[in-house]
Amino acid sequence: MNVEIRIVDGALARPAERGPGCGVGAVIAFEGVVRGEENGRAITGLDYEVYEGMAERELERLAVEVATSHGLMAVRVWHSRGFVAVGACSFRLEMESAHRQASLRAVAEFIDRLKRDVPIWKRAVEDRADSSQAPNRAGQQN
């Protein structure tokens, strides 16, 4: 099993092309993209706050648990910290398995548990200059 966790500043870049491992029959990728509105109000982006050290550890623990329970061959997770503009990618999840059902089920479980257990918070930013302010306000889910 291959698990990779990365928390990076700002929006996520396009991933490099890579070939699936031996025996992989399904690669499922999910990307979370910042919407242009939050609670009915126009926004310019989302500002992500991360509890450094714990967030990475919880993401890895979650990835290993989900990979083990669903028999996945690989899990790769990228998550942004700081400001991410509307339309940009702030979260990417890739899973590889022998058959599609395992990865499809695992993606849904991983995201549900991420939104419950991983110490990351997002705050809607209505004005770009507002992104440097400290308090965060949780918004709706992607």
């Binding site: 967030a55 991420l114 939104k115 419950r116 110490p119 990351i120 918070w121 949780a138 918004g139």
Partner: peptide
């Protein structure tokens, strides 16, 4: 740390 109302993803 108090962990509440997380909203990542």
């Amino acid at each position: 740390a108090l962990i509440a109302m997380v909203s990542g993803g």
